[in-house]
């Protein structure tokens, strides 16, 4: 006899997967596009401002853009607005540097009650840590390849 559906992990798993409502892909993508695009546009406008108005050189103004957006995201996270924007914007706030800033700031605020060293100090990296680790590792890997190639070319 066939096993009842609720006891049949394989069949049940397939059933659950099949029926689960998908996120609204189209509206999510639209929101992500608009919000993400706007953040990049804001960055571009700031880049122009730092470069042309304040007369910074290219690298300094690019760094200035990153720092400004990071500051803005940290501030919005602090006043409790970022998570509400993020819920609508999805990847639109996640992928720009604002997402990295939020990933650092949110655990910092959250773990204050566990103390400044083992709370904020240690847990500030819980969400952003992987980005730093694997970014560095891929940099080291690329550097190794680049160095070896530079010996021969």
């Amino acid at each position: 006899m066939e096993q009842k559906l609720y006891l049949d992990k394989k069949r049940y798993g397939a059933y659950v997967k099949g029926r689960a409502a998908r996120s609204h892909v189209f509206s999510n993508c639209t929101n992500a596009f608009l919000v993400g695009g706007s953040i990049c546009t804001l960055g571009q406008a700031l880049l122009g401002f730092y470069g042309q108005v304040l007369g910074m050189d290219e690298r300094a103004s690019a760094t200035g853009v990153s720092v400004s957006l990071i500051f803005l995201a940290a501030l919005l996270t602090g006043i409790g607005v970022f998570d509400r924007i993020g819920r609508v914007a999805g990847a639109g706030t996640l992928v720009p540097i604002t997402g990295f800033s939020n990933a650092v700031t949110s655990p910092a605020i959250d773990t204050r009650s566990e103390g400044w060293v083992m709370g904020v100090g240690a847990k500030i990296f819980t969400v952003a840590g992987p980005v730093i680790l694997y970014g560095t590792l891929s940099g080291v890997l690329y550097g190794t390849v680049y160095y070896i190639l530079s010996l021969f070319l």
Partner: peptide, 17 residues
Amino acid sequence: ERQFRLPIEYGGQRTPT
């Protein structure tokens, strides 16, 4: 949220289920 998921201020999306 803090224990099982992500920091409260983290701006993420959740699935419909």
